[in-house]
Structure formats: structure tokens, C-alpha cells
Amino acid sequence: MLKIKGLNRTFPANKKLDQAAVAAVDDLSVELEPGELFTMLGPSGCGKTTTLRCVAGLERPDAGEITLGDRVLFSSERKIDVDANQRGLGMVFQSYAIWPHMDVFRNIAFPLEIMPRKSRPSKKEIRVRVERVLDVVQLGHLAGRRATDLSGGQQQRLALARALVMEPPLLLLDEPLSNLDAKLREGMRFELKRLQRDLGVTAVYVTHDQVEALAMSNRIAVMRHGRIEQLGKPREIYGSPTTRFVADFIGSANFIEGQVVGPAPQGTGFVIRTAFGEVTAGSAQEHTVGDGVLITVRPESMSLDTAAGGDWTGEVAARAFLGDGVDHMVKLGEVTLRVKTSPRISIPDGTPVRVLFEDDACAIVPDGGGGSLASLEPREPVGSPA
């Protein structure tokens, strides 16, 4: 469907502002399947929006090739650069960019009305297409209302309808939910996913929100410094991160340094010796005895036992109630682990506890060190004191 090959975009240095040249997109290549919702996820400045703008034709790459089906949209080698208004793509921006002087119906119809005369649909066809897309986004009863009188969620659906009415082969979504409040944003995630699935639209979604990406995507590309750090299905990205950056950026993670003792006696993985005891951890790479590695364990994959004793024993240093659970910060010597328990469990500070988790909850990330066998400090939880 969409194929990006060797895409590069560098923003030049600005001597007046003492800014060095920035490689926003660095030799990026990826291919999308028809009907896929593909998410580019990463922190600010990772290159995700620049990549999207290059696909849209709003940004000119320095090198590479972008093809949509059999149509070349950009090629540095073949000197092809199709104008944005000739690419026929649908785009929903972070700001909805609705026309405040028009009602809902006219906002959606306007892109069709200004098409070149030879390709412009008839007035009857425009009405049919607008009414059809209004039904899809469930705004038919508001067709005559001024766009500025809509709620935030309704304006978001209006912006989506305006993109869909063009019946684009590819839909580009640039953080369209970031301006909504938390409750509405959660509802719109499912609404967007439903629309994309029911219509069979191929979509590229850009966001820095990890939960959004996990909830909506068929595949996720985690980006860093203009490159794809890891590409895979949401469950793969979350459960089997291939780098420390991915493990830390997607959700929350505990990191513990250790040393490879040998292969696991059963199944795949390796036995790892840590300062707190041995564990078995899975890995996508091969390791040899004595290798220093970094293992990661998700806070929700751990539990606490107040019958302390043996390996992985420490005490609760702090706790915070988060609504759907309680975060406990557990001190093991010089190391602090973050453990998320059921909201019904709240263990007072200073209580001796043992940290428990299954072997399949551990994964080895390849860029760990060996050295001091000490955990990296987790981020402090944000919530009410439990």
C-alpha cells in the first residue's frame, strides 16, 4: 500500500540561533499493508510528524522514495515530487482547522466543491457523499449546526469526516486527540478505531501517547532520533522490547542489571544472576555465559508478599493510589523497584515485603551493562497517597 524507502530529512543549522543541523528523519524505510492502522510513536523531536508531513507533501525530503500503490509521490532519484493537493490524501491535524463561518454540512462538502471542474462531483453526488459520511461519524442530526457550536469530540469527528469524504486511499492523522480531555480522548480512541476498521481505510497515526498507540494500532513503529527503534504489533512492543529505550518509553518498567549464568533448562531464555537472586528471562538475541545484561520487568507483572524472607526481599518505601491500582516503591538495598498491585492492596511504608514475579515476565534488553548489578531507578509514581 504505502512504501517509504530510505527517507531522509535534515533541517539546516541556524547560526543566528546557534542551532546545529538536525537529522529529523534518518534513512527511514517502512511498508504498510492495505487496511492497516499504523502508528508512529515517540517523544517530541523523534521525527514522526516530519515523516507524516513528507508523506502528505507538506515537507520536501532530502532523499528517498515514497510510493502509494503503483503511484510514486516522491523520488529523489527520479526527480518526482507530487504537490500536496495532487496526492489525494486525507489528513486530520492536531488543530481541527474547521471553518467557523460554515455549518457542519458545508464544512464537509467544501473540499469536494473546490475540486477541479473536470473531477468535481455533481451537486447530487456531493450531497450523497456528505450524508453518507455524516452517518458514519454519527453527526447527521447536527448537519445544520455551526461548526463552532460543536463540542470538542464532535469537532474532532467533523475534521475526520471532512477527510473521509474525499475517499482517500490513505488517511494521515497527526495527534488528532491531543486537544481533548482525558475522558473524551479515551472514548474517541475506540470511535476512531471502529471507523477505520469498518471503512477499511489505511491510516498512518502519529502520537506520543503510548496508551493511544497500544489501544488503536495494528502495528507500531517506536521512533527515536529520526529512526525506527522497534517495529511490531502492540503486544510484541510492550511485552518484548528490544531496547532499553522502548522498554522505558512504552508504559513503565523496572530495569535490573545482571550476568548470564547459562541457557534456561526448559524452553527459551537464559538464567540471569542478579544481586537479589537468579531469574529466567527471555531474549531475542543470543548470549554467552558471563555476559552483562539488563533485564526489564513491568510493575503490573510483579506482586508483593508480606511474608518476607529469601531472595528479592526489601521494604515498602512509598506508595500512591492511582484509582486502578496502587504503586508501591520497594527498596531492595540500594535499589528501588516499582510494583503495581490491585487497588484493594495497600501496604504501609516500612513494611518488609518480598517481590514476586514469574520468569516469563522478564525480558532481556540488549543494551544493558554488566558492572554494578544495580537497578536503574524507576520514575516516581504520580497519585494520591494510599
Rank of each mutant, 00 (worst) to 15 (best):
residue 30 V to N: 05
residue 148 T to R: 15
residue 79 K to G: 12
residue 29 S to K: 06
residue 285 Q to A: 13
residue 168 P to G: 06
residue 105 F to S: 03
residue 310 G to P: 01
residue 350 G to V: 01
residue 116 P to W: 04
residue 353 V to R: 03
residue 212 E to R: 05
residue 210 Q to V: 06
residue 132 R to N: 15
residue 100 P to M: 09
residue 305 D to Y: 00
residue 100 P to I: 09
residue 269 G to M: 10
residue 242 T to I: 13
residue 175 E to K: 05
residue 328 H to D: 01
residue 164 L to T: 11
residue 354 R to W: 00
residue 125 E to G: 13
residue 364 I to Y: 00
residue 208 H to D: 03
residue 363 A to C: 06
residue 176 P to K: 11
residue 174 D to F: 05
residue 121 P to S: 13
residue 345 I to A: 03
residue 346 S to W: 00
residue 69 G to A: 12
residue 64 G to C: 07
residue 42 G to R: 04
residue 343 P to M: 02
residue 211 V to S: 10
residue 81 D to Y: 13
residue 111 P to L: 03
residue 61 P to V: 12
residue 265 P to L: 12
residue 149 D to S: 15
residue 326 V to I: 10
residue 139 L to M: 14
residue 254 N to P: 15
residue 371 G to C: 01
residue 100 P to H: 06
residue 85 N to A: 13
residue 1 M to S: 02
residue 198 D to N: 10
residue 123 K to D: 15
residue 228 I to Q: 09
residue 322 L to G: 03
residue 122 S to Q: 08
residue 195 L to C: 11
residue 51 T to V: 11
residue 264 A to C: 06
residue 320 A to D: 07
residue 77 E to K: 15
residue 371 G to I: 00
residue 132 R to M: 15
residue 269 G to Y: 10
residue 262 G to H: 07
residue 267 G to P: 08
residue 36 E to I: 04
residue 5 K to H: 07
residue 134 L to K: 07
residue 190 F to N: 13
residue 221 A to K: 09
residue 82 V to D: 05
residue 41 L to N: 03
residue 268 T to K: 11
residue 20 A to F: 08
residue 285 Q to I: 08
residue 93 F to I: 02
residue 200 G to L: 04
residue 201 V to K: 03
residue 96 Y to M: 08
residue 38 F to S: 12
residue 347 I to T: 04
residue 51 T to Y: 08
residue 212 E to M: 04
residue 58 L to W: 13
residue 201 V to P: 02
residue 28 L to K: 09
residue 1 M to T: 01
residue 180 L to A: 14
residue 289 V to C: 07
residue 312 W to Y: 04
residue 73 L to D: 10
residue 293 V to N: 09
residue 69 G to R: 12
residue 369 G to V: 02
residue 373 L to Q: 01
residue 181 D to W: 13
residue 279 V to H: 02
residue 140 G to T: 11
residue 252 S to Y: 10
residue 132 R to V: 13
residue 293 V to R: 08
residue 249 F to V: 07
residue 219 R to K: 15
